[in-house]
Design a protein around this nucleic acid. Structure first.
Lengths: 193, 193, 193, 193
DNA sequence: TATGAATGAGATTTCATTCAT
DNA sequence: AATGAATGAAATCTCATTCAT
């Protein structure tokens, strides 16, 4: 691993566990075991480093979700695969999902739009789920009024649930399974009909 | 309004909109229109002020939820009243719910347990919902496997949804109604049975 | 005890144990159990309070030394009584001698001269010992070259010794007795001659 | 001289002349002619800088005393060389002895024990003198009851005397010579016996 | 006399960023 | 590419002193 990569990895860990403000250049360089000056040399400002780190994690997440949901046939199958992959990613080794939880409120609002931005990458994630839900509406495996609206609710739950799991002290062991069951019950078409 | 109260109000607003790190004593005192030193005089440290502000908001939230859910009869009614009151509170004028969203990741984990703490107050909220769900299980208006587990999912969704609404740029107009419908569909007992 | 006196007592204790800088008006008023504002009301500035407290302690010390040394007959006796009384005073309950140790380097240099000042009161102490030593020279119970110079040495030792006893971690149980023996050996006239 | 050294020198001077509390980072950096932030960069906290400065001065003192006392043969000679070297050091150019006088009451008590600490270095000084006094007891050039106890008295006098000389307004020109004569008279064995 | 809220200057400390080597 | 010394702005927090009641 190059020193540049070591810095990025250390940054992802520290931003994720300590948050943006509590993560300093000094901590990052010490954890990476390289000189302080290299941070500015390779990544410029702290803000830029943070956004870049988020971008990498988010791209990994979107790729993972695309691959996972592609393994299903029906809309319902693919929706559940999407959700399971999301939750798995949040607790996967080295996925650095925690970092994304830090970025939501603090930084997202201030970033510009346009391709190649966090905004644009998040949009992919939203659109992916929306398309899956639309398919489910067409193949009758889902019983939802609006793919767009349901997408919002599901993503709210996935983000809220992973936050509960990773940051709260009110955890339960089966949370992720419970969330998946909850979603399934709410969106699956009643086969009896 | 005393100067002490003015400081607390300014603190709630700024902590809520800017987050903990970006809120400075200077900003708070300027917004409140009082001298900088009064903050330390009345509230001690920034940490203490933050916790106190959160405590006030959280107590208001819990009170609101208790009163709202008491207006229902069946478990299902009360559960839905609970959820609606939660979401209403999150966007109510002067509820300063935003502040609570800031407190989760950053501070909650580090606070001690015991009565009078944020932890204890949050526990009330969780227990209230759990009791409601248990009632619904008994009066057959709910169809859920475990009140504890369902409680976790619902709260994840309420928190995730309010976060989406208040902090994200991917909002939809009907999000809160959609969340309530989503929950209802997932937990309501099928009357046909 | 009036509130004014309670403040003075608390001030002596805190200045003595914590030093000038670490003693705050808040600490003093809290220890005395009276309102903060009374300090300024009764004593004006911190500097003034400190000087006044020192003055009281120093006057007590000088009185004690005058009375103690008056109980001896010969110069040697009176010199030893002076030294013993000094050391006893330093560890007496409620003498607040510790306070004087704080005042030496920090404040003495900046005080004005003139009657009623710390300077003037210290001068009494020095002169008292010098007179005793002069008497010892005349009555042949002492063998010293110069009362003035010997006075300086003895007071250096008394102050250094009490500082060692009260502030250092290198204490020995018999220090004060050893100091008295040391002084006696150095100044007592050899009776054989 | 590097900027780091310039800061240390300025710190020694200011701590010595103004004391701990009155010496500010601003004063130190201005006197050293470097940026304020360098202090934290090189030395961390004020406390740490103070301890480090004391440590350097104290090590110099101990070295000086070891070398000086090694130049004597008998216990008496070496004891007097020790004392003279101590007093000379206290007024030597650039010895920054004044700093040590500040450290006694304020900081010493709170420092931990262990090698490399101020405590341990002071212990060397005490032990050196004690060994010298023991030798004098054996070679009959000293007439003292206990090397340990006498050590305490002598060091009390050296510290008290140097404090009188450097910090008091009641100085006499010959103080240091008088102190040495006083000690000699008290500890030297009577050659007639 | 008594109270404690109120003020604002100043202290320590942190830290992103720059720059000489 | 690599290093870490250097800078200075800004943050938190302290506290003597003032003042209205």
């Amino acid at each position: 691993m190059t020193r540049k990569d070591a810095l990025m990895t250390a940054a992802k860990e520290l931003f994720g566990t300590c948050g943006y403000a509590q993560t300093t250049f000094k901590k990052i360089s010490e954890r990476a075991g390289v000189a302080l000056g290299l941070l500015a040399h390779h990544y410029g400002t702290k803000e830029n480093l943070f956004l870049l780190a988020n971008m990498e994690v988010l791209e990994n997440l979107v790729n993972t979700l695309e691959q996972a949901s592609a393994r299903g046939i029906t809309g319902l199958e693919r929706a559940m695969l999407f959700c399971r992959a999301y939750l798995d990613f949040s607790i996967a080794e080295n996925s650095h999902y925690l970092l994304l939880l830090r970025s939501f409120p603090h930084k997202m609002a201030h970033t510009e739009e346009g391709p190649g931005t966090l905004q644009a990458e998040f949009q992919k994630l939203y659109t992916l789920l929306e398309n899956i839900l639309e398919q489910g509406n067409e193949d009758k495996t889902l019983d939802i009024a609006s793919p767009l609206q349901t997408r919002q609710v599901i993503i709210s739950l996935l983000m809220g649930g992973s936050r509960m799991q990773l940051l709260s002290s009110f955890r339960t062991a089966s949370l992720y399974e419970d969330i998946l069951a909850f979603i399934h019950k709410s969106i699956a078409a009643n086969p009896a009909h």
